[in-house]
């Protein structure tokens, strides 16, 4: 029973971070209609930024949120402005060009990181990296708890932004019906740029929060990109509430898979879950609740 509860706690805490990754992906998905396969690689860039500031200046990983998020916002804006938006005007046979473009961007980001930092594993060791609080025989990792709290507050902040502000409403409008939004006088191209930046900033936050408890190397992006799209499919494409559900579900599935089946299977669980969802509930969580 204790093992079960411990796994449950670990899964939910991890799920909070996954939700943050998934929300960024699903926002981009909703507004642009494409899956951003450079998502994990963007997170990798944020993690390197965090690492550099920690290593050379000694800045706390959580404080670097203030640096990594704006820088990734700019990276997202740059990618959307100069690479993805011009692609809309290119005539081609295959409509999946944009997805492929994100794959190319991901490769470039990974390789640039490899050039600068080599393939070595890096990590950030803080005083709270391995600390834990014990409640009733179950240990709560301090770093994961902080990350979870940050993730929750960022998510709440995002929701307030999407529901209350003009810009947030415009984003939701474009994601519901791009053409109608344009008729209403919303500059869809600008909204896309902002959304890409926002998605990148969110995943940057996840990266900075994850770094104290994880390790870092250039290829780390790939697995997280896959996690992000599994979360998005689980939650239903373009649904922000669904992404939270999807993130927690994936976190739990991975934790239970690792505990009861074997550590080797951790990555595979998500993929199997992904195929199962495609077969049985193709719309994801969104279809079940209509949120």
């Amino acid at each position: 029973m204790e093992v079960f509860l411990q796994t449950l706690v670990a899964g939910i805490l991890k799920g909070g971070l996954y939700a943050l990754i998934g929300i960024g992906m699903t926002l981009i998905m909703g507004v642009m209609g494409i899956i951003n396969l450079a998502h994990g690689q963007m997170m990798m860039v944020a993690m390197y930024i965090t690492y550099v500031f920690f290593h050379y200046i000694g800045l706390d990983p959580y404080a670097t949120l203030l640096i990594s998020m704006p820088s990734l916002f700019l990276l997202g804006v740059f990618i959307q402005m100069f690479l993805l938006n011009p692609l809309m005007k290119v005539e081609s046979i295959l409509p999946e060009n944009q997805v492929l473009m994100t794959v190319g961007i991901g490769m470039v980001l990974t390789e640039i990181a490899r050039f600068i930092f080599t393939s070595n594993y890096l990590s950030v060791k803080t005083s709270y990296s391995t600390a834990a609080i014990h409640i009733g025989g179950i240990s709560f990792s301090v770093a994961l708890m902080i990350a979870f709290i940050f993730a929750c507050s960022l998510t709440v902040g995002l929701f307030v932004f999407l529901i209350k502000t003009d810009l947030g409403r415009s984003i939701r409008a474009v994601s519901q019906d791009g053409e109608a939004a344009e008729i209403m006088g919303i500059n869809a191209e600008q909204i896309k740029i902002v959304t890409m930046g926002l998605g990148a900033a969110l995943v940057a936050a996840a990266g900075s929060l994850l770094l104290p408890i994880y390790y870092l190397f250039p290829d780390i992006g790939g697995p997280f990109t896959r996690k992000a799209f599994v979360i998005t499919i689980l939650g239903g494409l373009g649904s922000t509430v669904g992404a939270i559900f999807g993130g927690v579900a994936l976190g739990l599935a991975e934790a239970f898979g690792a505990t009861y089946i074997g550590m080797d299977f951790e990555d595979m669980i998500g993929l199997i879950l992904f195929l199962l969802v495609l077969i049985f509930i193709p719309g994801g969580f969104k279809r079940l609740t209509k949120v």
């Binding site: 290119v90 492929l100 794959v103 190319g104 470039v108």
Partner: peptide, 10 residues
């Protein structure tokens, strides 16, 4: 390869 993907698609 990555740069080529970007260039070719554009």
């Amino acid at each position: 390869f990555g740069l080529l993907v970007i260039f070719v698609i554009l």
